[in-house]
């Protein structure tokens, strides 16, 4: 069984981002970049399935600038066998990413396509669902447990009401949630080995995908700041403060 995993390069989750004063976006120059944390979970799941003998080959894919090759190297260090880089220097919105990923699926025919449930930069939470729609295949979003048996997968999903379990036929798209697994720490030998694994380059044009269209970003602003609060010394003071505001 072949697994495709998409990985996106994003500002590291520990960074406190800064909005550029001219409203043109978020400052990313000199900022620490990492693999989207959900994509690490997707990679980890693929590697565990390979270790269990369910998956035989893992292909990692990204759509983005030349620098995104770092993210593919991280995926290869996790245990991907090879990688595909759809090089695009401009902004890539979810529908364009999804079309590129669908084109890659057309060449690779994966049985399982694992993505993060959301990228922590755009917080869109769309790409996996769009890929599944365009492939006309099942989607299991927000997965916290995945079991594969033959040509079916049983997936437990974190939904607002609790935990929903669905059964889907493969090939299928699964987007992963936080509690699916805990990604491993990468070891130096694996990072070294990753440097020798193959990365294939392609472009949106090669794949027949148009980058145009989508949403126009008019401006980027900082959120309204909260007004400064007070420190209270005792529970009595807290209760008095809340009563004062009509909250108790």
């Amino acid at each position: 069984m072949k697994a495709l995993v998409s990985v996106k390069r994003v500002v590291d989750y520990n960074v406190r981002i800064q909005v550029k004063p001219d409203g043109s976006g978020v400052a990313t120059d000199g900022v620490k970049m990492s693999m989207n944390p959900f994509d690490e979970i997707a990679m980890e799941e693929a590697v565990r399935l390979k270790e269990k003998g369910v998956v035989s080959e893992i292909v990692a894919v990204t759509v983005g600038s030349a620098k995104c090759v770092e993210t593919l190297r991280t995926a290869l260090a996790f245990g991907a066998d090879r990688a595909i880089h759809v090089v695009e220097e401009g902004e890539v919105q979810p529908l364009v990413a999804a079309k590129a990923l669908v084109a890659v699926c057309g060449k690779e025919n994966p049985d399982l396509f694992l993505l993060g449930k959301q990228a922590i930069d755009d917080d869109a939470n769309q790409t996996g669902q769009m890929v599944a729609a365009l492939l006309d295949r099942p989607q299991a979003t927000f997965a916290s447990k995945v079991e594969i048996a033959g040509t079916k997968a049983t997936v437990t999903r974190e939904v607002d009401a609790g935990l929903q379990t669905i059964e889907i036929d493969l090939p299928a798209v699964i987007t992963v949630d936080l509690r699916l697994n805990e990604p491993r720490y990468l070891k130096l030998p694996d990072i070294m080995k990753a440097k020798r694994k193959p990365v294939e380059n392609t472009t949106l044009g090669d794949l027949g995908v148009q980058a145009a269209g989508g949403l126009k970003i008019v401006k980027t602003a900082s959120p309204a700041a909260r007004s400064k609060g007070v420190m209270v010394k005792t529970v009595d003071e807290l209760i008095a403060g809340l009563k004062n505001k009509g909250l108790l």
């Binding site: 922590i120 930069d121 917080d123 126009k216 401006k219 980027t220 900082s222 959120p223």
Partner: peptide
């Protein structure tokens, strides 16, 4: 709409 966990707000124009 919010991006980066609500640490920035973008104004978008949809088609």
């Amino acid at each position: 709409r919010p991006i980066y966990a609500g640490n920035a707000i973008v104004t978008v124009e949809a088609m």
